[in-house]
Design a protein around this nucleic acid. Structure first.
Length: 469
RNA sequence: GGCGACGUACCCAAGCGGUCUAAGGGAGCGGUCUGCAAAACCGCGAUUCAUCGGUUCGAAUCCGAUCGUCGCCUCCA
């Protein structure tokens, strides 16, 4: 059975095949770097990462491009507030984004082009659209895309443009539009823009939001590529507009598969700053949740369903991840060396079968947990050979190449604390239980758990976050 | 108003016409193991899938209606 992915364009699952048969070309909409990215943004970035990792699991090469939006209204406003230049601000938040992405084990895209480095490409694209009469210039020097010139406009979002409300507000910088629904390709300079400006054939100004993705995706991936993904909120208008611009400019397909992931909720509500339920990765890690638990929660639910970030769900995710990590630790104890041959077990086929069905990760995880129980049973009854243990580690790691939650979140302790663990071992041998428990309680208060096994004591991170959400 | 999604045990969740008296994870309870704990394993836990009708030999799965939750309709991952 081959991979099926739900294509927003058709509204149903379709068999996936790369356009060139071996390398999958993916473009995903990246962060707007005007503030620290929040956990909701990361649900999308983790989704892109999952898609990419799974395609590699299937044996495809992947070429992934993700833009960095470093020019837009919010960024300009923020520069004013913080008294920073555009590049100071955007470099700072781009770095923050990359740091959090790495901490969540997101495999960074092959190319992360910044919009401001591609103004010329955007201008070229806009020129083509004007030449072909898909776009027009207004008196103030702005350029708009004429949606009426593109018959397929609305197909992705399933919106009938004639049904769109005609009482659209027209903002200050958008007067002169022939149709209220036309969107801007180039925005003429305004006083609020300050020093943020570029020269263009239409005078100084800056690009509209949507054009960067068309220009950069086609520049790095070609005029036709395999997958374009983003959050559901981007379907309209962002991706609809991207299609209009790109298809009209090239008369090509542009994108074969459009994939969109659902939003993350916090305690059942949409995230917003006014509700103070606006978390960053650093917030959650500082509260004692591990990167693996966060990753599991955001990734192990189906991407087209909403996920609710709550204390209870984080705890459940954390336990699920512990189960994987403890399992690997048990295998490590038994395995002498890796078997060296290609790992293959029925569980991998079951995992693949589930994931092939539009990334049905819940079912896939169910199969993996079934397998883990079966192997644990074998370990308990001393039936597992060292050779098998080595092979099972390979299988687990193969699964982890997709889910990326099994490798340990290593607890960090001081030298004195390391000595305390030795001291506790001695106390236990002397049956000084009160001292042994005292030391364990100390570690608990620090967010660690000491687990005694026949082969010695293991230090783990506690499952619970230290601060409530 | 237009378009769309969803409603399965205490929580999350799979299920795409028969193998469903419904996977898996978390929480809970009982047990084995253990100095104690933890981990692991064993056992318990929905005769039922929002409600009501219909199609069918057969439905959680298809159709219709009703109730409820939510998203999008140019800030947004």
């Amino acid at each position: 059975m081959s991979l099926k992915l739900f294509n927003t364009l058709s509204g149903k699952p379709e068999s996936f095949k790369p356009l060139d048969d071996k390398t999958v070309r993916i473009y995903s909409c990246g962060p707007t770097v005007y503030d620290a990215p929040h956990i909701g943004n990361f649900r999308a970035f983790l989704f892109f990462d999952l898609v990419k990792r799974y395609l590699r699991f299937l044996g495809y090469e992947v070429n992934h491009v993700m833009n960095i939006t470093d020019i837009d209204d919010k960024i300009i406003a923020r520069c004013g507030e913080e008294g920073k230049t555009l590049s100071e601000l955007t470099n700072e938040y781009r770095a923050a984004f990359e740091k959090d992405a790495v901490s969540l084990r997101i495999d960074l895209p092959d190319t992360m082009p910044a919009a401001t480095d591609h103004i010329d490409d955007m201008i070229d694209l806009i020129k083509q659209l004007i030449d072909k009469d898909y776009a027009y210039l207004t008196d103030d020097g702005s350029v708009f895309f004429k949606i009426g010139s593109f018959p397929n406009y609305g197909r992705l979002s399933n919106i009938d443009t004639s049904q769109l409300s005609s009482t659209e507000r027209v903002t200050d910088d958008e007067y002169g539009k022939e149709n209220p629904q036309d969107f801007s390709l180039w925005k003429a300079w305004k006083e609020e823009d300050g020093e943020v400006e570029w020269e263009s054939p239409w005078g100084r100004g800056r690009p509209g939001w949507h054009i960067e993705c068309s220009a950069m995706s086609m520049k790095y991936l070609g005029e036709e590529f395999d997958i374009h993904c983003g959050g559901v909120d981007l379907i309209f208008p962002h991706h609809e507009n991207e299609i209009a611009q790109s298809v009209c400019a090239t008369d090509k397909l542009f994108v074969n598969f459009w994939l969109h992931c659902e939003h993350l909720l916090v305690n059942g509500a949409k995230m917003s700053k006014s509700l103070q339920n606006y978390y960053t990765i650093t917030d959650l890690i500082n509260r004692g949740y591990t990167a693996s638990a966060i990753r599991y929660l955001l990734t192990a639910s189906h991407y087209r369903h909403k996920v609710d970030l709550t204390e209870e769900h984080l705890l459940a995710a954390s336990q699920a991840v512990n189960r994987f990590q403890d399992f690997r630790r048990r295998l490590e104890k038994l395995a002498t060396s890796s078997s060296g041959h290609e790992a293959d077990l029925p569980v991998l086929d079951e995992f693949r079968k589930a994931m092939n069905n539009d990334l049905n990760i819940a079912e896939a995880m169910g199969k993996v947990f079934d397998w883990i129980r079966e192997v644990n049973r074998k370990i308990d009854s001393n039936d597992l050979t060292t050779e098998e243990a080595g092979r099972f580690i390979e299988v687990l790691d193969k699964i982890d190449s997709v889910i990326a939650v099994v490798s340990d979140d290593k607890p960090e302790i001081t030298d004195e604390e390391a000595t305390m663990i030795d001291e506790r071992e001695k106390a236990r041998q002397e049956k000084n239980w009160s001292r042994a428990d005292e030391i364990r309680d100390y570690f608990r208060s620090r967010g660690f758990e000491l687990e005694d096994t026949p082969d010695g004591t293991i230090l783990k991170l506690s499952k619970e976050g230290s601060d409530k959400l």
